[in-house]
Design a binder for these strands. Structure first.
Lengths: 325, 325
DNA sequence: CTGAAAGCGCTAACAT
DNA sequence: ATGTTAGCGCTTTCAG
């Protein structure tokens, strides 16, 4: 390439990186040669020399969770907009071994944890070594690690508040796993609002299981077994609510006339007619943008205290709660 | 690392790569030091020296298509099982510029095209330069490029055959975009079976649009406007069928009593009670496994003719067609 | 402002 | 069987 342009290797580097002052004539020579040859600098050589890879890794453990594609789409767009490549690790191990190895090998400059489950050790290992780490949509109050998340606890609180404001006090709830971040936070928020109102829920109406259609279905069947029916049911994830609504429908229970149902996540699917589900929309694009901003700042050497950013969710009222009985 | 183990750099390399014979005592020395230091060889240096990155790229243009997560999950698992890293490019440009740049920079050894749309130019550029390229779930009869895909045309043929075998001859169809691979192939197969039976479909009952719930909904509304209703409707994607079923339901049309509906893809969601959709299941895991096998062979230097592998889909009969009117 | 040269951390050829 | 050495393609001093 330097030969083709008739200049030194150093000049090529200077032109391509735009750092130093180069004579316009030489610059044009280099750029012509680059166009001619479709030249792209070798990433390994550059990375070895600079100790930067211009690549981030994303740790994902739940690609099949219907919540994930939106987040992945947003994250990859943000990365692209910043000239960063994305390594995707489909890894459910809490140690995040693929991330550890890639960081140790210098393959990535930073790591986004998008995994739903609480993989403390993997994050600790990286953060402890000073590697730029970003937690998206995972609250983790005590850890000195950057994190951007929608305010799961507030959305739980607001869901309960919405039920109570509309006079629905005989309530049931269906939650996802306790070893994730979002679901327990929503539980805490929901319970807090109930406590304020002095309302309690019997254990058999406070169900915990997986984040899945199947769990929602099973929960629906279980809740229908006892009378009187709840006036309102909160699900910690839309996909759970889909299963619940399906079970209610299969048993001939009218929503919202007999029971209100509210989900959480704001999946596009929640607007589909058979569900028409009231829910809280998560600001996924904002999470990705702000999170990536922060990660890039860390990779650029920012040494300030970790940020913990909570973004508000937006209540979307649809047919599953809209019409009073 | 060589210093820590008290041996030469070359011996370290030999132990870690396991290629050459090394004295067991020295080997143990090296391995002890590696455990001690958590040493991982620098990926850039290795890559520069070997001109291999042990990384593949995946070109994806439709992360939000509900079909995609299963494929991505399967592909990343297969890659991990082979010790390959995965760069994900969320890129809807037909030239696949991110893939071009990464290949030119030596960042990847091979490229999987998982994009639904027909991005001919990007594939041509890579394949023309002899880069290992794999097309998953995209038929491309004429191109000298490896490809593994479910047999979209056969699944269309079988869907029509199923309708006709059950005496459903007043048929409507709802397809996805013509500039993709899967949908037109399904169209061709479906039409071929109809032609064999001498059955034709009026243009207003042969709808083409996007692969989306919304298109399915709109198609449903359009098809309901004319009487008599079709006896059976084929959708080229499950997600279209979801919209169609929703529209039929909203208009009080009974499925399957009044109309049969069949989808295509075999999404897990198609089993959900509100849809209970007959469909063709794509062998996504097999596609990923066989495709990755082939790509790895190419990256290993295989120079034989491109493979074009068609995998059969499996008809799943559910409530949307099961019960005769 | 430009070129020459060193060196990033590996692997492979060569020498022992 | 092991060590020594060259060199992959860049960026960055350092001279000029």
């Amino acid at each position: 390439m330097a030969r083709a342009a008739g200049v030194s290797q150093a000049t090529v580097s200077r032109v391509l990186n735009g750092n130093a002052k180069v004579d316009p004539a030489l610059r044009e020579l280099v750029e012509a040669a680059r166009r001619e040859l479709d030249y792209v600098p070798n990433a390994s050589a550059k990375s070895m020399r600079t100790a930067k890879s211009e690549t981030i890794g994303i740790v994902a453990s739940e690609i099949l969770n219907p919540y994930f594609p939106r987040l992945l789409d947003a994250l990859t767009r943000e990365a692209r907009g910043r000239g960063l490549s994305v390594l995707l690790w489909n890894d459910e191990d809490p140690m995040a071994p693929m991330a550890q190895a890639a960081v140790a090998a210098g393959s990535v400059d930073g790591v986004v944890f998008a995994a739903a489950r609480e993989s403390t050790q993997g994050v600790d290992l990286l953060a402890g070594r000073g590697i730029p780490v970003m937690l998206v949509n995972r609250g983790w109050r005590d850890k000195p690690v950057d994190q951007v998340t929608s305010d799961h606890e507030a959305s739980g609180y607001q869901a309960a508040d919405y039920f109570l404001r509309h006079g629905r006090e005989r309530i049931a709830t269906v939650f996802g796993p306790r070893d994730t971040f979002a679901s327990p936070a929503r539980e805490i928020g929901f319970r807090r609002r109930l406590d304020e109102a002095g309302i309690s829920i019997a254990p058999e109406r406070w169900l915990v299981g997986t984040t899945s259609y199947e769990h929602g279905w099973a929960a629906g069947m279980a809740l229908l077994a006892a009378r009187p029916l709840p006036e309102a049911i909160f699900c910690s994830a839309d996909v759970i609510a889909f299963g619940l609504l399906s079970a209610l429908g299969a048993q001939g229970v009218q929503v919202p006339e007999e029971v209100w149902v509210m989900g959480n996540d704001g999946l596009p699917m929640s607007a589909w007619q058979p569900f028409d589900l009231s829910t809280h929309r998560q600001p996924v694009e904002d999470i990705a943008r702000i999170g990536m901003d922060r990660l890039v700042a860390r990779m650029g050497g920012a040494h300030d205290d970790p940020h913990r950013i909570l973004l508000p969710t937006e209540l979307i009222v649809r047919g599953s709660t809209a019409h009073c009985a």
